[in-house]
Design a binder for these strands. Structure first.
Lengths: 211, 211
DNA sequence: CAACCGTTTATGATAGATAATCTATAATGA
DNA sequence: TCATTATAGATTATCTATCATAAACGGTTG
């Protein structure tokens, strides 16, 4: 998926811990003890501390000076916040990506769509979902924007896994994705953007049916 | 301005180096040698490496494994990228902040506006500019969005300082800011948002008059 | 151009020092 | 008695200092 920055120990640790946080294996507010993690990864505390800084920048952990780091808390308000940020930024990205979309890009998008159709578990579904949204915006060639969106997608996945854990999960339709791809093939960028924004906000509404 | 995270050595170093990069004192692509910086701050290389990770997450430096970190390059495309991201996100933030705006918030916004009027140097002007945009969106109470906007503002300031260095700088009008505040006082949120988006994109057009 | 060699530098390990925090127990006061 | 405070010991984060390893860089040769 993203680049493997496994060349340094710190990057390897950050990736592994980050995955545990997103998957829910590490619960919110769980303390992360640097010496324990160092032992687990056969390293010293130095790369662990670097990994913590990286995870802190991704909002996956919160650090309190002299009290170490904890897994970032999950609060329900961030669902809406992340959805609004994604909706705004993905539309910008798609609008810049659309003129550069080649047929090979479209094929890649369709591949992610099909993978979503055949997904049996929520993990598979989320992976395909991330791949779809990533492929949609990747051609925009705006590295900072893409990095932001990757971070928001990860945060979103964390929320999805957490909510599935409490409310269960059933396979969802990819109809929204299919319509977006269809609009792009027809070179109807405005419609694709509007469908995309509505799609992201719809997911939020599904997550918070009460409000 | 922002919280002082001066409680740890790493945070202190990151803040100091980050300021030098934004001000232009550290040129793009300049190598940052961890031992030199450690000596300068009377520390060892461990907190310096943590500071590097933090600066990397802010896109202020780029790190190549086994080759250390360099000041992030400045490329002209990022002007447009940052402007589009800011325009999209600040509108979202303002739309969420507007219903919560109290008169004390409005007073704070106006204070930043006046400080911009009386600014004599580009440094003063940029500080007031950041304060204005920050005060505008602060009441939205969306921490992740506010953190993103702070990072984009810093990146924007870096570009402004770099361009002023090459093309000179003259005091600019705050008319856009004034109109936004006026629309907010009139509770015309739609107009304020539209003015804000146009304002940010206008700055970009000033920066890149040729394209 | 390509292979070699010494210097510089990043990366990480280890040991240790300091200080802040936490926990559990004891002491104090209402 | 019960609740609050004080305190002592253990745990932990933070940082220093030193060392080892390996990669990259710069120059000199063949």
């Amino acid at each position: 998926m993203t680049n493997d920055e496994n060349t340094t120990t710190a990057g390897r640790i950050a990736e592994a811990i980050g995955e545990r946080i997103i998957s829910g294996e590490l619960q919110p507010d769980a303390p992360l003890r640097q010496d324990h993690i160092a032992r687990e990864f056969n390293s010293s505390h130095v790369p662990v501390r670097e990994a913590f800084r990286q995870l802190q920048a991704q909002h996956l952990v919160v650090a309190v000076p002299r009290r170490g780091v904890r897994v970032a808390p999950l609060n329900i308000n961030s669902v809406k916040e992340i959805a609004e940020m994604r909706a705004a930024l993905e539309v910008v990205a798609l609008r810049n990506a659309a003129p550069k979309l080649t047929s090979s890009h479209l094929a890649r998008i369709e591949l992610a769509l099909i993978e979503g159709d055949t997904a049996q578990t929520i993990q598979e579904f989320e992976m395909a979902n991330r791949a779809f949204h990533h492929a949609l915006v990747a051609p925009c060639a705006m590295p900072r924007l893409l990095a932001s969106l990757d971070g928001l997608q990860l945060a979103n996945s964390r929320l999805v896994f957490a909510m599935a854990r409490s409310s269960g999960w059933r396979p969802r339709s990819n109809q929204d994705h299919r319509l977006i791809l269809q609009a792009l093939r027809a070179r109807n960028v405005d419609q694709a953007c509007s469908l995309l924004a509505r799609h992201i906000q719809t997911i939020e509404r599904l997550a918070l049916p009460s409000s």
